[in-house]
Computed example of a mutant assay.
Amino acid sequence: MKQPLVSCIMPTANRHKYIPFAVDYFLQQDYHHAELVIIDDGKESIAPLLPEIPNIQYFYTPPLGTIGAKRNYACEKAKGEIIVHWDDDDWYAYDWISQQVNFLLSSGADICGIKHIHHYSAIMQAFWQGDAENRNNPNSKPFLAGATMVYRKSFWEQHPFKDLQKGEDEGFVQTPGAKVFAHDYIDGFIAMLHPDNTTIKSFENRNHKKNH
């Protein structure tokens, strides 16, 4: 049985030092019928950092605006029937794509991903697990980390991302009628945090409050 084509979408801008790692994680995948779709609207093109191979599609554009707009642009360019989010500064296990596809197909869900996330900060020399579960509204769908989402392109075509800089992933998950499945392959993804990352700032603020 032929594997479905998977498009890993990676919006990026001014993140040159992370790009070689993101590309390497993709090239190490054990799922081979896949493409990496890179949308770059940064000040300087990252093209010199990319290998010239058919399954890496690179688009350098004028500023596109919000992350929601960038995700929509990436999905438009994607050739695959399945979309996998691929953040430019995070770590993905070698079998991440194959696991994501299996969870999506076996669960019958519209959107899959994880809600319990491993975080690592080299600067702080800290490793911890964050609970992204939405407890404020027990009747809402599971919260999924945006960097870990997988869904069919046909679903996105009916429910594109909102034009938002923050919260576009949560709005996507909360699409009325969407079946959402939070799987348990939490060891396949690590959020790599850095000074410009809002998550690490929240972690620092939480520690500061605990220590005073």
Rank of each mutant, 00 (worst) to 15 (best):
His183Phe: 03
Pro48Asp: 12
Ile83Arg: 11
Arg135Met: 11
Asp95Leu: 00
Gln174Trp: 06
Ala13Tyr: 05
Val6Ser: 08
Ile123Ala: 12
Cys112Met: 04
Ala147Leu: 00
Gly65Val: 14
Phe189Ser: 01
Asn14Leu: 02
Gly171Leu: 09
Pro4Ser: 06
Met10Asp: 03
Glu81Val: 11
Phe155Ile: 04
Trp128His: 04
Met124Ala: 11
Val6Gly: 08
Lys141Met: 05
Gln100Leu: 09
His159Thr: 08
Ala182Met: 01
Ala78Val: 12
His16Asp: 15
Val101Pro: 11
Gln99Leu: 05
Asp95Ala: 04
Phe143Asp: 08
Gln28Pro: 06
Ile38Glu: 09
Ile186Asp: 06
Val84Phe: 08
Tyr18Lys: 10
Cys75Val: 15
Ala178Leu: 03
Lys17Val: 14
Ile19Glu: 04
Trp96Asn: 06
Asp184Ile: 04
Ala147Asp: 02
Asp187Tyr: 09
Gly146Asn: 04
Met149Thr: 07
Thr61Gln: 07
Asp87Arg: 00
Ala93Phe: 02
Tyr92Leu: 10
Ala13Cys: 03
Asn139Glu: 15
Gln129Val: 13
Gln57Asp: 06
Leu50Ile: 15
Ser140Lys: 05
Ile123Trp: 10
Glu44Arg: 14
Ala126Gly: 08
Ile83Gln: 07
Trp156Cys: 01
Ile53Trp: 13
Tyr151His: 11
Thr66Val: 12
His16Cys: 10
Asp90Val: 00
His183Cys: 05
Gln158Cys: 03
Ile46Pro: 14
Ala126Trp: 12
Asn211His: 13
Gly65Met: 12
Ala22Thr: 11
Lys17Ser: 13
Leu164Asn: 05
Pro11His: 04
Trp156Asn: 00
Ile97Arg: 02
Arg71Ser: 14
Trp91Lys: 05
Cys75Gln: 10
Thr198Gly: 08
Pro176Ile: 01
Lys2Phe: 09
Phe203Gly: 01
Asn197Trp: 05
Pro4Val: 11
Thr175Asn: 02
Thr148Lys: 00
Val23Ser: 08
Leu105Tyr: 11
Tyr94Ile: 14
Pro62Phe: 02
Ile46Trp: 08
Ala132Asp: 15
Phe181Trp: 02
Ser154Gly: 04
Met149Cys: 10
Gln3Thr: 14
Pro54His: 09
Gly68Arg: 06
Val150Cys: 13
Ile114Trp: 00
Tyr60Gln: 08
Gln3Asn: 13
Pro54Asn: 08
His194Gly: 03
Ser202Trp: 09
Glu170Tyr: 05
Lys179His: 13
Leu49Pro: 14
Lys2Tyr: 10
Gly146Pro: 07
Pro195Ser: 08
Ala47Lys: 15
Gln174Arg: 04
Lys79Asp: 14
Trp96Phe: 13
Arg15Met: 07
Lys115Asp: 15
Pro54Phe: 06
Phe59Lys: 12
Asn137Ser: 08
Pro11Arg: 02
Pro160Arg: 01
Asn139Pro: 11
Arg71Tyr: 15
Lys43Gln: 15
Asp30Lys: 01
Gly42Glu: 04
Leu50Arg: 12
Leu49Lys: 12
His183Gln: 05
Ala191Tyr: 00
Ser121His: 08
Leu5Val: 07
Leu164Val: 09
Ile38Met: 09
Asp88His: 05
Gly167Glu: 13
Lys17Thr: 15
Lys2Val: 12
Asp41His: 00
Arg135Ser: 12
Pro195Glu: 14
His33Asn: 13
Val180Met: 00
Glu168Phe: 08
Thr175Tyr: 01
Trp128Gly: 01
Asn14Ala: 03
His183Glu: 06
Trp156Val: 01
Phe203Thr: 05
Ile53Ser: 11
Asn102Lys: 13
Gln129Ser: 10
Cys112Gln: 02
Met1Trp: 09
